[in-house]
Write a protein that binds this DNA or RNA. Sequence first.
DNA 1: GTGGTCTAGACCACT
DNA 2: GTGGTCTAGACCACG
Lengths: 134, 134, 134, 134
Amino acid sequence: MWTTIGSDSTVPIYEQIIAQVVGVIASGGLKPGDMLPSVREMAGKLLVNPNTVARAYGELERAGLVEPRRGTGMLILPASDTKAADMRLTILRERLRPMLRDALGFGLDAGEILDLIRAELDSLNTRTSAPAAS
Amino acid sequence: MWTTIGSDSTVPIYEQIIAQVVGVIASGGLKPGDMLPSVREMAGKLLVNPNTVARAYGELERAGLVEPRRGTGMLILPASDTKAADMRLTILRERLRPMLRDALGFGLDAGEILDLIRAELDSLNTRTSAPAAS
Amino acid sequence: MWTTIGSDSTVPIYEQIIAQVVGVIASGGLKPGDMLPSVREMAGKLLVNPNTVARAYGELERAGLVEPRRGTGMLILPASDTKAADMRLTILRERLRPMLRDALGFGLDAGEILDLIRAELDSLNTRTSAPAAS
Amino acid sequence: MWTTIGSDSTVPIYEQIIAQVVGVIASGGLKPGDMLPSVREMAGKLLVNPNTVARAYGELERAGLVEPRRGTGMLILPASDTKAADMRLTILRERLRPMLRDALGFGLDAGEILDLIRAELDSLNTRTSAPAAS
DNA sequence: GTGGTCTAGACCACT
DNA sequence: GTGGTCTAGACCACG
């Protein structure tokens, strides 16, 4: 369920953790009422400093997705699944905007940009999953 | 030809300058054999510190697009136009890939992602439809 | 391990710092997996501005010798020791070639040039025979 | 007699011109009583800005090698040949010193440095001139 | 005029 | 604590 953090990315580690948790909740991997892995456990799984996991959990708490339960860990709150589905769109939009602005600044038009993205999506899909049965 | 720098972005100013210069060269606004605007002139146009422009120019030099001519300025090198066209695609692809990987990891499919991007492109275009600064 | 910067030289300070770090790595004073002294610490040792050290570190990163670890410092990469050993020879050769070409163009022969260099090396060695700074 | 200036060198153009003139006089290509090519003529030969040639000539005058003759050009002074022979050693020494200091800073010892120089001299000699008859 | 280097001091995000 | 970025202002060599 949890994938180790790639040090190749420029995205801050704690944001990568947030994105992972949001993705897991949004896609039903964890449901309201479940518990998040403990900070230490998660840090071990992701090969990351526990402080960094703690920061990510803190932001998830501020976002209203989870709530600390004394002594037991982070409880995934009711309605966190729909909230997570919203958040992933917000996160993507905020990462998308500066990139698209730069793409336009590069002198590319919307059509060229979309073509580039489609091609990149294709290459990611074929590399990640087997081709669907026709 | 040159647009002012958006201070709202997390992208470093010097990278925004690089992107602009690459875009201008790739789209033929400046051609091999031309000179780049002087550091001080560009700094004035973009309302940034000359040191920041100098750093951008230094990176353009390392990228092989331009070459300093002692006492005269920055010369745009032969073949820099095709190199710039390559660069902007490469840069975008490398910024695109981790974001699209995360988007797919969020459980979104290609159609949803493209819709999101189209909407974001529209909002950027309508917001920047005012005439460009000199 | 680190020697103070000679302000008598026309060589930029940041290049002198690069040369020192390359020398230390090449000679095993620091090994892959170690951390470079922090920017502020190195700046204190060498009595230069932290920005100047940061610039040197940036170029060492581009050379593939080190990698910034967010929040922790500059990691010396695997194989950086052999790379550093190559680099110092390459750097010297490239600085040597135009000078030797000019020396031959002056009508001097190899023996005269080597005598000159030996004399210069002697004078440098006797002048720097004092114990190195910490 | 005069070779065009290589823009690949980091050595200032006016110093390259000085070195050429000194070399020509030291090796007898021009003798006391001869005239230096006019600024414009030399600038044409070397593909260089006349101002730069003028600066080089100015320094040669300050060094006491030549003297301006109104309306006719630069006269090569008596004893300039021996003076030029001294100068070329001085010029070489001053270019040699920072490089050797850096080489020592790299952790190389005098023997290794001399080996490197000998190898470089050999490669320059074999590339420049045909092998001597055995 | 040009670019290049350096200093001083500030602010920021990340761990 | 770490590195990264930016500003302001200075000085220099080169053409």
